[in-house]
Design a protein around this nucleic acid. Sequence first.
DNA 1: TATCAATATTGATATATATCATACTATATG
DNA 2: CATATAGTATGATATATATCAATATTGATA
Lengths: 231, 231
Amino acid sequence: MSNTKRESRCDVCIYKSYLFNYLTKQETALVNLNKKEIVIEKGEIICQEGKPIKYLVYLREGLMKLYKTGAGRTQQIISIATPQDFIGLLSVFSNTEYVYSLSALEDSSLCMIELDVIKKIILQNGKFALSLIEKMNKISDVVLSNKVELGVKQLRGRIAHILLMFAEQVYRSDIYELPVSRKEIGELIDMRTENVVRILSEFRKDQLIGIEGKKIEIRNKPMLKKISELG
Amino acid sequence: MSNTKRESRCDVCIYKSYLFNYLTKQETALVNLNKKEIVIEKGEIICQEGKPIKYLVYLREGLMKLYKTGAGRTQQIISIATPQDFIGLLSVFSNTEYVYSLSALEDSSLCMIELDVIKKIILQNGKFALSLIEKMNKISDVVLSNKVELGVKQLRGRIAHILLMFAEQVYRSDIYELPVSRKEIGELIDMRTENVVRILSEFRKDQLIGIEGKKIEIRNKPMLKKISELG
DNA sequence: TATCAATATTGATATATATCATACTATATG
DNA sequence: CATATAGTATGATATATATCAATATTGATA
């Protein structure tokens, strides 16, 4: 737990979410006083299911996973958070305890804002509230449609989908280092580790991708897209 | 399309959502002026994917399904709305067109409120905004956790889950009339019609349920719960 | 460096689920 | 009334996926 803390000013924060542009000077100052910044290492767990919710977590830099622990230590990954995401935004206002856990897939830098302060601002700042609502809807669109699509796709389609997701949403590059293990990919798209491995190898044999350990290279994006769409 | 329209006053509406208790008299009057009430018959489609969003739909009485049409006329049911639900609340603020369609599973009575009016009220009424946010989070908890659980459960577990859902969430009775066809059950829990039929028959043979056409009787709830939980 | 544990890989096999075929309702429709 | 049409039902078979087993590889740690 090497939670290096450093304090920066919200008003000039370079990571600032566009949502906070709707705040007044006073509100920004209030956030400034009631937030803490932490830097965490890959693998560290920030929030655990069942623990009381105190903060709204904002991801400045890095990559994190939001997951749920089921019976028999199995995990299910709900979503992968990228910079500028408010993590778990879809559940913090309806629960007093976290329903998901949160851990770092890469070294990450977070800003944790007291939830009570956010609530206070919602009460007094309509523009902020409406923007937050829009933001929540956008997140729910993505998360939900991902989960809904899982149901119709076969394993090959899911793997293609996740490979493209990392390329397009996360790394914005056709060459990237997978931030997750084969097992975690399985937890994200509901399949067994062995099948993740198998289908990745298959895709490599078919020249769709290059693999070198965790390094992935998308080689035939049109074909991958087709596989992803047709399931 | 027998959209019988009748107008009632919001301030004394017996179907009123608790959310509207946070409104001022003026705001209630504004809603009153910008809403329309409609009564629709089983099978009627209210919103269609791709059509512009103008209203926030509130279900007063009846039962509706929110669904998505995929390639090849296949449907996927996202959720089933019960009275007092704001339908599609999770996507109306992030899109200008509906991303889901909405149709009646039973004769239903709806109140459709101009979305612009809702937005206006969010901007000026913090309590309403915060309550709406909490509501949205609750909906997303339910919808998302349902979809997440689908991924881990096998067919038997899914059927058990859905049978219990109708008994406990929708009809609050162990005997009820299924509002959906076997095909629609499949669309709701990602499985083939034949397997829905097969497993229902199996459950009947095992004395877990009684079936008579669409009429379902839960006969061994503890066992169904176990099947639902263990997947 | 040696050792251990976790991860990755591949193959063989079992199981779950989808698909195909057929028949048998109910319900609508001319 | 006859005849479509969708829904329900069941069996046989094909296919997709999970499970089991064995080995290789990597990464962490003493």
